[in-house]
Design a protein around this nucleic acid. Structure first.
Lengths: 211, 211
DNA sequence: GAATTTCTGGACTGAGTATTATGGAAGTTC
DNA sequence: GAACTTCCATAATACTCAGTCCAGAAATTC
């Protein structure tokens, strides 16, 4: 049962992808309606508002789309079939590769998408901050799970691991934006994970560094 | 020999401080001339342009001012009277405390000040990117110095340390902006430095963790 | 006090902002 | 083909943007 009336002439999905690239590269506020309409195939204001509602509504839809596609590199955090260590390492590595990808803007839309905002757009800023908070809790949950399983020692140091991984993860957005390569970031991740291993109570496999 | 003519009525330094707070909190583009003039004491456009030249010139002056004041937390990186390890730890700790301070906006102006930019302001973006590159090279220099001194092993892992510390440092801007406390960040730094110690060839003091 | 210099208030550019209104064309369903 | 629904192009909304200009006022130096 197709809808009656004249169908829209442009491809809504392709328009969304083009708009995502623009928001991703420039952020929410500096991206103007003119740019958006242009990159969507020179659609008219009327078509834009009919299809997407408003600039903010479009951005919210695009954030959702981003989370369901590129953002899936964070999925391991909530995959309890993985060991907590695997979950975190896979997330970091996947994020590093995604953010340095060459088929789209570098960096992370959730970290960089609304970092510069005037007061009237705090709601957009909050949208992304809430998603970052969700990531933080996911990382914390992994560490807590590891401690509960006895895989990780319950020490003052292990309690700091969530903050270490989170700051590093969010910092990768800056490094990727500044041109850092996936290889460089992945090598850093490999080193960072030894901090976990040094507190690991499951001593199977590689040891823990040494002087 | 004071300059002749009518002196300006507002305090230029105080105006700069107020403008810095605004740019720091909102970033370059979303901060409008109206907001700037208002926070500088409702000065007129004429006074503004006479005193500061343009919005971009003001921003550049403020970045310079920031580097000479708050940005001095990075100074240990180039202080060769410090051991490389001390230099990096002091920089990270100082940065954590500064960015979470309550007397000014949270986060880091150099990381967050122009992260969202339209194409016409790439020069401003570049200004901050260059400063971040300087930081990266400072961190790398510290690690290289430690290796040259024989204080740090020359291994594949130690070669990744600059990327680890840099990503973490830049990530702190996001964490501070999202409300992370100095205590939390400093605890994370303390843990992160054990990565250094695990590769340290100077085994005086604390050992290197382990389960 | 006179001459000079610089600042300030306010009106004003021209361009760009997101968004809305109008009128007619195009395509759909029955 | 008729009725209907939806889309699109154009124009225009009210507003903000960074930046300019001018006339007059204020403070300086001589």
């Amino acid at each position: 049962m197709a809808r009656t009336g004249r169908p829209r002439e442009f491809d809504r999905d392709k328009a969304l992808d083009a708009a995502m690239a623009l928001f991703w590269a420039q952020g929410y506020e500096p991206t103007s309606l003119s740019q958006l309409k242009a990159c969507m195939g020179n659609i008219s204001p009327a078509s834009f508002y009919a299809a997407f509602g408003s600039k903010e509504a479009l951005f919210r839809e695009i954030v959702q789309r981003y989370l369901e596609t590129y953002g899936q590199v964070m999925a391991p955090l909530w995959d309890e079939t993985l060991s907590p260590r695997e979950a975190i390492e896979q997330t970091l590595r996947g994020s590093a590769r995604m953010q340095t990808g060459h088929a789209h803007p570098t960096g992370c839309l959730i970290v960089l998408g609304a970092s510069n905002c005037s007061p009237e757009n705090h709601s957009v800023q909050y949208l992304l901050a809430a998603e970052r908070a969700r990531t933080r809790s996911g990382i914390s949950a992994c560490v807590n799970r590891a401690i509960a399983q006895g895989a990780l020692a319950d020490t003052p140091l292990t309690e700091t691991l969530p903050a270490v991984f989170t700051a590093f993860l969010h910092g990768m957005a800056c490094e990727a934006r500044d041109g850092g390569s996936a290889e460089k970031l992945e090598a850093a991740i490999e080193s960072l994970m030894r901090l976990w291993d040094s507190q690991s109570m499951v001593l199977s496999g590689s040891g823990h560094g040494g002087g």
